[in-house]
Every structure is written in structure tokens, then in C-alpha cells.
């Protein structure tokens, strides 16, 4: 099984450790992983701002980089959702379709494709999960509180396999953190308020760490936590699942 590793641009630039953890975790689980050099971004920042028509360049690059893999895996629900919903390239539609159908966010790849049921990981801390909206409501990584439907959570399922880890209960299980791509700067006031409220929920319930499937949301929450001089830290789920 050949896995193409997609490390979205801001993870590549600002959170290389998340990329490293994702790679080591997949390797530990026996995957043959390749990181195609020359990859950049899924195009989402532009598309969500109304500039989807500018994303041809990104799309072509993406298809070129990832068309030859059995699976494409990324540690970001949001970028994966964008590719699944919007990757099209004139003249290369077969390759684009292959990618749209074979791209997975890391935790769903672990639960649904690799069917992982135990992990060699240890993290003796109290952890709160931030359910990023695109992963949750877009990729259905976990059940949504709005629906009258049976609960499940792929990230939780994985975190339960980590020795010593204690999950905290939140008052609002799946409220948005307010990152929202360019929303975080164009709607700064509301974005920050939403982030502060999410953080309060985690802190009030005793979380030492906030984890999640999207570094973008975590980066926003971390920015606020650091401004507050808080002791609470953020970690991407790959960093916890890979922690021995």
C-alpha cells in the first residue's frame, strides 16, 4: 500500500512536528509513505474567500503530485474536505476523481482503512478534543450534536487507545472555534471571541492539552492561549497518537 503524504502549506511552514509525527505514525503502522516534493496547498484559502476560479494552478499541481498513490493522507480535515469537494482538472478528470475518492484525513485513515485497534502510545494527561467543523460536519469524523442520530467519534476511538490519557467532557461538544480561514482576520473580533469561548470550555473542564484534527484551528487557539499566558497547550492528534 503506497501512501502519498500531503502536508498542507501552513503545517509545512509552521508546524513541521505535526508532519513528522504523522509520517512516523504511518510508518510505525506499516505503511509505505512518500512525501512528494514540490507540494504546496490545496487551494482552500482562496476558494473559501470566493476565488475558487484562481485555484487551477493549485489543482494541477495537486493532481501531478498525488495521482500515483493508492491513498493520500493528510493531518488536516479541512484540506482533505476541500480536495474531496473541489478538486477538478480539465483533461485529468480521472486522476482527480481517483484522488477525491482516495484522500483521507489521518484519523479516519487509521480507523477505516488501517482498522487500527491498538496503538503503542502513552500520554498521561487530561485532554480536550476540539472537533474541527470541516472534519466533523464535512467528513463525518464524529457525530454532530444537531442531528438525532447515534453518537460516534473516530478521534475519540483512537485517543481511547492511548495509555494514561483522560478525555475531558465539554459543555459544547462541537462548537466552532472561529478560525474559518480568512474569517480569522476579516472578522477578527468575532473570530477571537469564538476562540476564547472554546478555550474557556476546555480550561473550565480541566484540560491540560487541547487536541484536534486541524492544525489551523489549533494555531488560532494556541495564539489566544499564548496571549493569555496560559499553561494549556495544543497538540495535533498525530503528536499524541505518536507519543510513546
Amino acid at each position: 500500500m503506497k501512501v502519498g503524504l500531503f502536508i498542507p502549506c501552513y503545517i509545512d511552514q509552521f508546524y513541521p512536528n505535526v508532519g513528522i509525527a504523522t509520517l512516523s505514525l504511518l510508518e510505525k503502522l506499516g505503511c509505505e509513505v512518500v512525501y512528494p516534493q514540490g507540494q504546496t496547498c490545496c487551494g482552500q484559502p482562496m476558494a473559501n474567500s470566493g476565488f475558487e476560479h484562481l485555484t487551477h494552478g493549485c489543482n494541477e499541481l495537486f493532481v501531478k503530485n498525488f495521482q500515483d498513490y493508492d491513498y493520500i493522507v493528510a493531518p488536516s480535515g479541512s484540506c482533505v474536505l476541500h480536495i474531496k469537494d473541489h478538486l477538478h482538472v480539465d483533461g485529468k478528470e480521472d486522476a482527480a476523481t481517483h484522488i477525491r475518492q482516495r484522500i483521507y484525513e489521518l484519523s479516519e485513515f487509521l480507523t477505516d482503512v488501517l482498522k487500527v485497534n491498538n496503538l503503542r502510545a502513552k500520554f498521561p494527561h487530561k485532554v480536550g478534543i476540539h472537533q474541527s467543523c470541516h472534519g466533523q460536519r464535512g467528513l463525518h469524523l464524529s457525530q454532530m450534536t444537531e442531528l438525532v442520530a447515534a453518537p460516534f467519534s473516530k478521534p475519540e476511538q483512537l485517543l481511547h487507545m492511548v495509555e494514561g490519557l483522560e478525555l475531558v467532557e465539554l459543555k459544547r461538544k462541537d462548537e466552532c472555534c472561529g478560525f474559518g480561514g480568512t474569517f480569522c482576520v476579516f472578522e477578527e473580533a468575532v473570530s477571537v471571541k469564538m476562540g476564547k469561548d472554546r478555550i474557556d470550555d476546555h480550561v473550565n473542564n480541566g484540560a491540560e492539552y487541547i487536541t484536534g484534527n486541524d492544525v489551523s484551528c489549533l494555531m488560532h487557539l494556541e495564539g489566544i492561549l499564548r496571549r493569555q499566558n496560559s499553561n494549556v497547550k495544543v497538540l495535533h492528534i498525530a503528536e499524541i497518537l505518536n507519543h510513546e
Binding site: 473559501n48 474567500s49 467543523c133 470541516h134 460536519r137 466552532c176 474569517f183
Partner: peptide, 11 residues
């Protein structure tokens, strides 16, 4: 643009 596209509304 006054939205994070979180999707809770649709649900």
C-alpha cells in the same frame, strides 16, 4: 463572508 462555514445551520 460573515461565517466560518462550520455547517451547524444546515444540520
Amino acid at each position: 463572508f460573515a461565517s466560518t462555514l462550520c455547517g451547524s445551520c444546515s444540520n
